[in-house]
Structure formats: C-alpha cells, structure tokens
Design a protein around this nucleic acid. Structure first.
Lengths: 370, 370
DNA sequence: TACTCAGATGAATCCCACG
DNA sequence: ACGTGGGATTCATCTGAGT
C-alpha cells in the first residue's frame, strides 16, 4: 500500500492507510476541511428482536417496551450525531458525503444530516437485482437499500460528473435508482473456514458508480466504517486516495491484504467524459476578428428571424442590439438563449449553426495550447 | 356517495365523506382505535429557490402552493409530530399507516414514526417510469419517491395480503420497489381551464397496490391530506370505506365529484401497465461497474482496430472517444455501428464479442425478473 | 382509420466565472 | 461580497392536429 501524506496547516493527512480506532476520535485527530468525499456505511445495531444492544455495546434489558425502543433510538441518534459532526468537520467546504442504510437507520441519518446543515442532493436507491427473499411471507421482499448524497452545505460547489454517469447509462441521464447485484461470488471475501469475512460487504460496482459520480482522480475519499475495505479497493482502482478507519483488527487485516492486491487502472482509462462547461470559453467576437464571419453578414434563426453581425461582435436586429444570446432571447421572448446553437450562417448554400465555427477554434486550441 | 357510520363507543365514525378542516383537529374529533389503515401524503416542504426552465426555455410549473411552505425544519417537525400523534390515536391496535414523501421530508417522517412507537414494516420505493428529468444536469434524475409502511406498534397483527401481491407480480414475491408511471393523461384531473386540479395528484395504481396489500374489503381507510381524493376513489373501487380530510374547499369539490363518478370494482382502469420490453436494455457501463470488463482493457474489432475501455463505460481510440457504437462507427467511417457485435475482448486466449457479456446479464435478469 | 409528428409536461431543494 | 451576463441543459408519455 502506498502511503502518502498531504500537509494541511499543521496537521497532515495520512493517505491510503487503514487507521485503527473509534471513528469519531480518529476523525477528530485529522485536520479540518481536508477531505473531498466521505462514504459511510454505519452499523444499524438497533436490535429489534432478541438481544438489544445499544451502539456503545451496553445491553438493554427489556425489548418489547416502547420506552426501551425510544431509549435505544436516543442512543443511536447520539452515535449518529457524533460521527456525522466529526465527518462534517474534516470535509472540505465543497466536499460531499454518501451514507447508506436501510429503513432501520436511514431516516434517523437523513434527519440528522439535515439538522447539521448538510444539503441533500439526492437520495439514491440501490435496487438489488438478487435480494434475499422474505421467507415468512409477512412483508415485502426487502429488495433495496437507500443512500443519501449530501454536500457539506447548501452553497457547496460539489463534484458531479454528469456526463460520465450519462455515459455509464448508455447516453441517458442517470436516475436515482441504481440496479446493482449484491456482493457474492468471487468478490465476496471469505475467511479460511469459508465464512463471510464481513456480514455486510458492499459490491464494488456500487462504490465504482459513487466515485465516478462524485470524485475526480486524486481526490481523497474517507470511509469511517471501513470494514473489509470496499471503499479503499475501488478508490485505488480508480486512482483516488483513501483513508479508512476501522475498529476491528480482523477487518483491518482482511482489508489491507485485499487492497494490496488491487491494481490501479491506467490513467487514460480514468479520464472520463467531460462536460462542455469544462471547455474553454470562446468569445463570439473572435469569429469576427478572425474573418470567419464578416461584419454586415446576416445570421438567421430556426424560425426565420434575422440579425446582422457588427464589427464588435454584437448583433443588431430591428430594435434589438446586443450579444448573440441577448438578441436571440429578445427575439424569442425567452428568459435566455444559447446564441451559439440558435444562430445560423450560410455556407455552401446551407444554414449551419455558428457553433460549428466555435468548434473549429476549440480544435485549434487543443492542437496548440498556449 | 354512500354515507355509513360505524359506532365505536360513544362516538361514531363518518364513512365515505370528505371532512372539512385541519386534519389534526378533525382526527382528534374521531373515536380512538377505530380506523384500519391511514394513507398520508403530507406536504413535502420542497424549499424551491428560483424559477426553473427546461432546455427549450419553457417554464416548469413549480409546486409553490402556500400549504407547502414551512419556516424551518423545526416547524415542519412540529407539524409532523402533531398529525402523526393524532393519526396514531385513531388507528386500531392492529392498524397500519402508509406515508409517502421525497428526500425533502421523508427522513423526518420516518424518524418521527419510530419515535412515536410505530413499527416500520418496509420502506417502499415508488420508481417512476416517466419522471421529470434533471434539466440542468446538476444531479441525478429524481426518479422515485419513498413510502413507509408501519404498524401501530410492534405487536400489531397487521394485514398483509401476501398471496394477492404475489399474484399481482406474476407469481413472484412482491419486492419493496414498485415501478408505476406518474399520474398523467386522462387520469390527471384538470379544471375547466385545463390546468392541473392539484399539483401532486398520485396515480391510482399506487393506491390500488397499497390497499390490496394492506386492507381487506370493508376496512376503513383514512386519508388526512385528501387532496383530490385518489385514496377515496380507489377505496370505493375496491370496496373499502374511506374517510377523507381536506382543508381546501376547491380540492374537496373536485374529489367529491370524482368519487361520485367512480364505479366499484372497475378493475380495467387499475391494471398496472406491465410494459415488458422484449429485451431489457443493458448499458455497456454496467459491464465495467460489475468488473466484467476493466477500465484500461483493450477491445479489438474484426479488422484489427483497437480501443481502450474507460471507467465511465466509454471507449477511447487514438483521437476518437465515445460510446462503443460511436467509436466503432468512427473507426469504420460508417454512419452507425452496433458496438455489441463489433467489439471483442479476450477470454481464454480467444476473441469473444462483448455481446456475450450482455447476454450473461440478460440471463440473470430473466432468472430474477423485476 | 391508421399513422406521423410537433408540442406539452411532470413533488425540482437544477450555473458559475468574472469583474 | 455581490451583481452581471454568457451559455449549458431533458426523458417518457400523452394529446391533438394533420396526412
């Protein structure tokens, strides 16, 4: 495992390590505003039948009493409040968190996220293609778990690789319900006796999609309930840095061995479809300066509106003057207008969007970046 | 509308009526332990900011009604606490409740349900087959809403028609995620001017499934946020008794007229559209997420072209990037190309079309439909 | 009639670099 | 910090007019 550290003020950030201990204490020892993404799969040990243990492992006596249930909810809320606050402190201002849970705990996590000022971006349903059936026929097959994606605050400029997720979904915008098989087969880690190494190991496909969606290569991803290290394994494959925190030594050992055996994907495979927003801005005036369009030349719209190009890169049409966007919006009575795709010019007798000229300039810029 | 009443101690239960007023006050005026099922679709507290336009510049009709405005989470919690307590009092000991919401409010409702001693049986995801897209490309398509099904207490012997739901689902155990279209077309109620009678009308198919699952004929179903009366309409069709509570006179009027026109047991309008695709679409990206192909892996074409797989399920080859189909077409100089049959990967030293992997996934899907 | 195609629309916490 | 304005962004389904 490669170990790097990042300086952040006085404290340093231990990268690609599995830290031992209680996640709240460990997170509190890390520098604030230092982590890009947190993925958390906390225990739901609200025990509903049989022995009831509070999250701190103290035992609750009576089970069937409403007040004891309430007491255990209170304890679980206290636990949730503590680790979410610690997580929020170490998140960068533009950072985000994903938590996963079932109906036993996810409502309490979601409410506490909101209470602490996290800003929910989506709730995402992991729809299991092969869930365990409900054997007694007393309820619906519990065929999904819920993830909550939230930024540190409402104003956060969170990372979302929209185009990459659209590409993952065959060119259609990715939805909030994801069909992914549960973790089994070769991917499921077993001990020497053939028993599951961890009771709730998450599929790598789930983490793959989360990280492609919400991080960029080189980002730091922290998992406070690391378990057998799915988060670390996928982070390494995808060229992200990880920080794991895990209390149980047995899990840490399994995770370390697992991650050591992971190979990084090569760099080219990690670059992902880019949004147009990432492309350099080209002022319309540049087309005029370069002689791609002449002052006085007439542009037309799909619905037959016309405007004349002026030497300074503005348009004029009857009583309207201004940018390609402003004139387009005014002529359409629309709140806004993308002039690049709205206006067309004549080439070889055919009307062609002026965006074609911008693409030519961008292609030149890519060849000779200056 | 047939009006019956049921005696319960001193007070009586008004059946098949729409009661005017605040739902907490009205519920408090009803006898305790008297209702079999409550279905509640409370305000979501959406907290919308500015206007939203589609890419074609048309404006999205926002849910900006006064009844959805709350000053804070604290105010919303107070509201939730009050109506859930009133609802719980009138529920029979073996009764149950369904609530529906989005990520804006459902976590707070779920936590409060637990706090009050309701016993969650399932969270149920309504997966919309035709949700509104995310127009700005800043988040995932919000393609689902969440329902919570809870009994009055842990010891409740709640109603669950397991076999009926299994039958509704082609003989396979019903799962916790339900695919149902949003309410539109002829089912969507309009006023004389052609505007939506209610901004958030729920589909009858959803209520149909809830009532078939959780009630028997003759049961009393109460809806404290009746709106335009979907709950009442479906209850009448299915031979259940309903009690509606609605504050707004305009909604009550629409609902009354609607329910008066409902015929019992008119199942034709209720059959859930199955719309099975002959062959389900499998995004190429799924092969990457599932680890069937690795980012960086090289695919080859019959004529020796090569391309590398990227983490988002796109390919890259020399100067061309894009989907398996786009890159294939570009390399062949063809207008189109079926990437599934064009590209091959290496398995056991032999080149095999990637379509083989798609067939594997489809086979899994066929074994476990839904 | 049957089919095509343009237009409308749905519970939505929906931009951001630059001056 | 705040205002300005360039310019990026959509899927499934139903309706209704036209052929």
């Amino acid at each position: 495992m490669t170990t790097k550290t990042k300086k952040k003020g006085a404290a340093t950030l231990p990268l690609n390590e599995i830290l031992a201990g209680d996640c709240v204490e460990v997170m509190n020892s890390l520098p604030e505003n230092s982590v890009d993404l947190i993925f958390a799969d906390p225990p739901y040990n609200l025990q509903l039948r049989g022995d009831l243990h509070r999250p701190d492992n103290s035992k609750v006596d009576a089970v069937d009493d409403h007040w004891d249930q309430f007491d255990s909810f209170k304890a679980y809320d206290k636990f949730t409040r503590a680790w979410l606050a610690a997580a929020r402190r170490i998140l960068k201002p533009n950072g985000a968190i994903w938590v996963i849970g079932s109906y036993h705990n996810v409502f309490r996590m979601g409410a506490e996220l909101q209470n602490q000022g996290f800003w929910i971006l989506n709730d995402v349903v992991w729809r299991k293609s092969n869930p365990m059936p409900n054997f007694r026929g007393k309820r619906l097959t519990n065929a999904h778990e819920t993830m909550i994606w939230a930024s540190k605050q409402e104003a956060s400029k969170y990372t979302f690789n929209y185009e990459a997720l659209k590409a993952l979904n065959d060119g259609v915008q990715m939805r909030s319900d994801w069909v992914i098989p549960i973790c089994n087969g070769h991917e499921r880690l077993k001990d020497d006796a053939g028993n599951k190494a961890h009771p709730t190991q998450k599929p790598e496909a789930l983490l793959h999609r989360v990280m492609v969606a919400a991080t960029n290569p080189g980002d730091v991803v922290l998992d406070p309930f690391f378990g057998t290290g799915t988060t670390g394994a996928v982070a390494k494959m995808l060229g992200r840095e990880f920080i794991g925190i895990e209390r149980e030594e047995a899990y840490r050992e399994v995770a370390k061995k697992r991650i050591d055996n992971v190979r990084k994907f090569d760099k080219e495979a990690l670059t992902v479809s880019q949004s147009k927003r990432a492309q350099p801005r080209v002022p319309f005036g540049q087309l005029v300066e370069r002689g791609m369009l002449r002052p006085g030349e007439v542009l037309t719209s799909p619905r037959g509106k016309v405007a004349k190009v002026r030497a300074d890169g503005t348009l004029v049409s009857d009583d309207v003057k201004g940018s390609i966007h402003q004139v387009g919006a005014a002529l359409e009575g629309a709140p806004s207008c993308n002039g690049w795709t709205y206006w067309m010019f004549k080439r070889d007798g055919k009307n062609v969007p002026i965006d074609l000229l911008r693409q030519q300039i961008r292609a030149e810029m890519a060849e000779r970046p200056n």
